[in-house]
């Protein structure tokens, strides 16, 4: 009985899902055929063909995969750096009241500035090039990393700290064995939001200062009037974003088996 309703539910899910997708494609197609929309925008078929072709035929300097891997490399560098510094500073501020008192007011000045807003400054400071893009990505994820980690380190269950003290843990052991592990779920939340803003920052940076990469691909599509490149770029960006988020979620599941949190 349960099994039967389950499969019925699954069938419905697929049916409605496919239906929704088809309606979307139909509207797209109809808009291209019957309205002015078609003059600037490619039909689904043309877009798909262009997407597949982009894997073998270079656009600008690279094929689609080439652009994607360039963007990914940039994100990875900036994101790794911002995560490491963000976690260190966040833990420091969350754990030590003195560090919090010293760093937090200064941190508050840069915290609300979006990573993307650093683009003009970064260009003036560092010039156009890879380090500038890394810097922008760094700034994009940094404050979120700090805030989440700090939140985690501040929300350590005081009772658990007491337990550890009674069991004879020293100050540095309490940090490593209590504060750090209880911050990990918060750190992962930070890593997740920071990854999506990093991915966004790389696009913006590439749109403004680069000659290659996924962001360049879509802006060049606009500038050269080849909107299909734009569409290709967006599909690719969406897919990569999805893959990154999934990978990170799996890593979290692996590392935080003890949390009951499930999503």
């Amino acid at each position: 009985m349960i099994n039967k309703t389950f499969t019925k539910d699954m069938r419905e899910t697929w049916m409605y899902g496919i239906l929704g997708f088809l309606v979307f494609l139909l509207v797209w197609q109809a808009a291209c055929v019957f309205t002015n929309f078609g003059k600037i925008f490619p039909t689904p078929k043309v877009s798909l063909a262009a997407f597949l072709q982009a894997f073998v035929e270079p656009i600008g300097r690279h094929t689609l995969l080439g652009h994607i891997s360039i963007s990914l490399r940039r994100v990875l560098i900036g994101y790794t750096l911002s995560s490491i510094t963000g976690i260190i500073i966040g833990l420091l501020m969350g754990y030590s009241k003195l560090a919090h008192a010293i760093i937090y007011p200064i941190f508050c000045i840069i915290r609300p500035i979006p990573g993307i807003a650093w683009i003009p400054l970064a260009i003036l400071w560092i010039g156009i090039g890879e380090p500038t893009i890394h810097f922008i990505i760094f700034m994009g994820g940094f404050s979120q990393m700090v805030m989440n980690t700090m939140d985690g380190a501040q929300h350590v269950d005081t009772e658990l700290v007491g337990v550890a003290k009674v069991l004879g843990a020293k100050e540095n052991q309490i940090f490593r064995k209590i504060v750090l592990p209880s911050s990990i779920p918060y750190i992962f939340t930070g890593l997740q939001t920071s990854l999506s803003t990093s991915w966004m920052a790389v696009l913006a940076a590439e749109m403004i200062t680069a000659r290659e990469g996924a962001g360049w691909l879509i802006i060049a599509g606009m500038q050269t009037g080849r909107i299909e490149n734009n569409v290709i770029g967006m599909i690719a960006i969406g897919l990569v974003g999805l893959i990154l988020a999934t990978l990170l979620r799996n890593a979290e599941r692996r590392l935080c088996r003890w949390t009951v949190r499930s999503r």
Binding site: E159, A164, G168, A169, P181, T259
Partner: peptide, 25 residues
């Protein structure tokens, strides 16, 4: 040594990890 009302186990450690915490520290 203390046993708590709320159990206060370390949720990120296994049973073994919890029990060996004191000697390990």
């Amino acid at each position: 040594g203390m046993v708590y009302q709320t159990t206060a186990l370390f949720p990120w450690l296994t049973v073994m990890g919890n029990v060996e915490f004191g000697p390990k520290a």
